[in-house]
């Protein structure tokens, strides 16, 4: 199992690791962490993304420092944190849109960039964009295997399959700007699925949706994760749904990070709330690693 392998390596090489990590992240890797991580991962897949000591900056301002975490095939991985804590920058780095200042991001187990689907946030341009649903879903096939200028029959088939999966086949020739927010988000999800064979990354997928559409969206993503085994990496502000669906949580804050299975995140959060005053205080200064999370800095 890759997980145990990693742990062995740590014990053998603690000195070296600690040098790279001044805060000694791996040293704090307790037994609890390992047991919990294995318990909650119902089907243990291979490690597919390994992020090691990366630092990122946004417009010359450092937002993420010395962060490490791993993603396994089949995970439902949520990234939470305050505005400006570098969630979107981190996602850009994972997508290969941005180079980390230092550290490295490894795609393992023959995962390729082409296997990763992406659902970005809405942009202002899209609100009144004259394009049919089919055209938009098709655009997900560009760049995947089509090096040529035109799309093939195969791509059309992929687009149709994904539209069917999300129940938007009947909207296929409708204009995107006429659709409701929930339908638009389904279209963008279908487009993302055209390029997602193994991993799907979502950037705040329920922003601006009404509660019904939001819960529909969550259950769709949950189905994709469970039925198709596609790994989900999602940025979210909605803590209640993170707790409901996620298998792993990465919590970014300006000063400290939490990474671990969702059970541990609940404890981490409770502790944080105790220290702070009220339910809104999610990100306090607690000793995260005591609960099995990797607490860096």
């Amino acid at each position: 199992m890759p997980f145990v392998f990693k742990s062995k390596k740590i014990s053998a090489d603690t000195e070296k690791e600690t040098k790279i990590h001044p805060a000694g992240a791996w040293k704090n890797y307790s037994k609890v962490r390992r047991i919990n991580a294995e318990q909650c991962r119902n089907q243990i897949g291979n490690k597919i993304i390994d992020v090691e000591n990366i630092s990122l900056s946004y417009e010359n301002k450092a937002v993420v420092n010395n962060l490490s975490f791993q993603v396994y095939q089949g995970d439902y991985f949520c990234i939470v944190g305050e505005n400006g804590s570098g969630k979107t920058t981190l996602l850009d780095a994972l997508l290969g849109l941005k180079k980390p200042d230092c550290g490295k991001i490894d795609l393992l187990d023959s995962l390729k960039r082409n296997d990763i689907g992406f659902l970005p946030q809405h942009t202002e341009v899209q609100r009144d964009f004259p394009a049919t649903v089919f055209e938009i879903v098709m655009s997900g096939c560009i760049g995947r295997h089509s090096k040529g200028p035109f799309l093939s029959k195969n791509d059309r088939q992929t687009a149709f399959t994904n539209m069917e999966k999300l129940g938007i086949t009947s909207l296929s020739s409708r204009s995107y700007r006429e659709l409701s927010g929930g339908q638009q988000q389904r279209v963008l999800l279908a487009r993302a699925l055209c390029s997602a064979t193994r991993v799907l990354m979502l950037d705040e997928p329920v922003t601006g949706l009404d509660p019904k559409a939001a819960s529909d969206m969550y259950s769709l993503v949950h189905d994709i994760n469970k039925k198709e085994g596609i790994t989900i990496i999602m940025i979210s502000h909605d803590i209640s749904s993170v707790l409901k669906y996620a298998s792993h949580v990465l919590c970014l804050d300006r000063s400290k990070y939490f990474f671990g299975p969702v059970e541990n995140f609940i404890k981490y959060r409770d502790k944080a709330c105790e220290k702070q005053y009220g339910d809104d205080a999610l990100y306090g200064n607690s000793d995260a690693y005591k609960f099995g999370g990797t607490d860096i800095n």
């Binding site: 849109l97 942009t123 341009v125 964009f129 394009a131 098709m138 655009s139 035109f150 993302a192």
Partner: peptide, 23 residues
Amino acid sequence: FVLCYNRMFSLTFDERFAGATGI
């Protein structure tokens, strides 16, 4: 514009997504 029709569409509609798909 003829050769890059599909790519230009993707770029115009959503630059970030287009970048993520390798354009």
